[in-house]
Amino acid sequence: MPDATDADGLTVGQVSTHLGVTVRALHHWDEIGLARPSLRTAAGYRLYTAGDLERLHRIVVYREIGLGLDRIRAILDDSTADVPGALRAQRAQIAERIERLQQLGAGLDRMIDAHERGLLLTVEQQAAIFGPEWNPDWPAQARQRYGDSTQWMQYAERSASRAPEEWQAIADAVAGFDRALGDAMDAGVAPGSPEANRLVERHREVFASYFPLTRQMQVCLGRTFETDPGFAAHYDGIRAGLATWFRRVIDASARAHSIDPDTATWQ
């Protein structure tokens, strides 16, 4: 390596600033023989010439587009290397990554929308799926009331990935369960009986479409079904007194699992 004065070239620090790469990277490229400074001062400092800078510029560009250091070395040092071919291949990989990132971006948009709205369905779709009694304002009201809860997060993240057909299947499952409740009450099924307990398990399975439901949480819901005017009207509209009967069925099942309905909390 020829001796030189500082005026003959740029120091490592100057090149680092000029190219926007770290000194550590320059030292590494020097150590592996990818880009070595051509000059050295009498004091032993390495200096990069104009030719060195040109090579470094190409390294920075190739690295920026995602080429590995070994591939960069081959392009720079092999006069027979198919540079356009290598760049086209890299461009194809970048295009695939862009498409994947766009898909991720769209998924994030849906996730954000679901956290803010709850349902990613139009008003018309909601009416068609959930029936004429459905109020499209309910999701917004639920978010205002429960938006900071873990259950809202779980509900929203399920909602983000659901198509209308999947919501229709959930609505059908809920409607089928409601019919089964009414039929069981008509048949005189007693709370705590095997048939009643199966209904409780079925309710937890159906409700899990929204978020996981523990037995204690189910007891809390049972209370709400009986005392909340909206829920009580829904169940009592299926059969008179169904809201209270359903709450008793849930409580009896909870007791069988060593849960005191009077002290159960949302956990």
Rank of each mutant, 00 (worst) to 15 (best):
D3R: 14
T5Y: 10
D8L: 06
G9W: 00
G9E: 09
V12K: 09
T17Q: 12
G20R: 02
V21H: 15
V23P: 07
V23S: 13
V23M: 14
A25M: 13
A25D: 03
L26E: 08
H27C: 07
H28A: 15
D30R: 04
I32V: 07
G33K: 10
G33P: 13
R36I: 10
P37K: 07
T41A: 11
G44K: 05
Y48Q: 04
T49W: 10
G51E: 08
E54G: 06
E54N: 13
R55G: 02
R58C: 02
R63I: 14
R63E: 10
E64M: 05
G66T: 13
R71L: 09
R71V: 10
R73A: 11
L76E: 14
D77S: 08
T80M: 09
A81I: 07
D82Q: 15
V83F: 12
R88K: 10
A89V: 14
Q90A: 15
R91A: 13
I98L: 15
I98V: 15
I98N: 15
R100H: 13
L101N: 14
L104C: 08
G105W: 02
G105E: 15
G107Q: 14
G107L: 10
L108F: 11
D109I: 15
D109E: 02
I112W: 08
D113Y: 02
E116H: 12
L121A: 01
T122M: 10
V123I: 08
E124W: 03
A127H: 13
I129E: 14
F130G: 06
G131S: 08
E133I: 05
W134H: 11
N135K: 11
D137Q: 11
D137T: 00
P139R: 03
A140N: 03
A142F: 06
Y146L: 10
D148K: 01
T150C: 11
W152Y: 05
A156M: 08
E157P: 02
A163H: 15
P164H: 02
E166I: 01
E166F: 00
I170M: 02
A171F: 00
A173E: 04
G176L: 04
F177R: 04
D178Y: 01
A180F: 03
D186A: 05
G188L: 05
V189L: 13
S193K: 09
A196G: 03
N197P: 15
L199D: 01
L199W: 08
R202F: 03
H203Q: 14
E205Y: 01
E205L: 03
V206I: 05
F207D: 05
F211W: 07
M217T: 00
M217Q: 06
V219N: 06
R223G: 03
T224L: 04
T224S: 08
T224G: 01
T224F: 00
F225D: 01
F225L: 04
T227R: 04
D228W: 02
G230N: 09
F231Y: 14
A232H: 01
Y235E: 08
G237T: 08
G237L: 02
R239Y: 11
A240Y: 12
A243H: 07
W245R: 12
F246L: 06
V249Q: 10
V249C: 14
I250C: 05
S253T: 08
S253C: 11
P261V: 03
T263E: 09
A264Q: 13
Q267E: 07
